[in-house]
């Protein structure tokens, strides 16, 4: 299922155009990005939680040289129980 399919199904459900749904989807993704970059979790009931995890800077040894690696933020997803139940029926 790609993005087009998602938009088309959304448009059917909400009686909207695919253009509108795609624009609103982009805005939704940007809202989620902003909150994740602020290290805030995003909780969707019945679906799951997007959890940003900050990895601290550290010193790594690459080819015998010490390199100071920069920090980074990674996004982890914790699925909700409802999603797990529905998905396990496969």
């Amino acid at each position: 299922m790609d993005n087009r399919t998602i938009n088309s199904r959304l448009a059917k459900r909400l009686n909207m155009n695919t253009k509108e749904t795609s624009s609103i989807t982009e805005q939704l993704v940007s809202v989620i990005k902003d909150s994740l970059s602020d290290l805030d979790k995003v909780a969707i009931p019945g679906f799951g939680t997007f959890d940003p995890v900050k990895e601290d800077e550290y010193i790594d040894i690459i080819d015998g040289h010490k390199v100071l690696m920069p920090p980074s933020i990674s996004v982890k997803f914790n699925p909700g129980t409802q999603l797990k139940k529905n998905t396990r029926r496969i």
């Binding site: 790609d2 998602i6 199904r9 959304l10 993704v29 969707i44 679906f47 529905n86």
Partner: peptide, 19 residues
């Protein structure tokens, strides 16, 4: 939006949400 994604997952599909 997330229900549609969940439906895709329940159907065994790989869901690619842009962005």
């Amino acid at each position: 939006y997330f229900e549609v994604i969940a439906e895709g997952l329940a159907a065994g599909e790989l869901v690619n949400a842009k962005g």
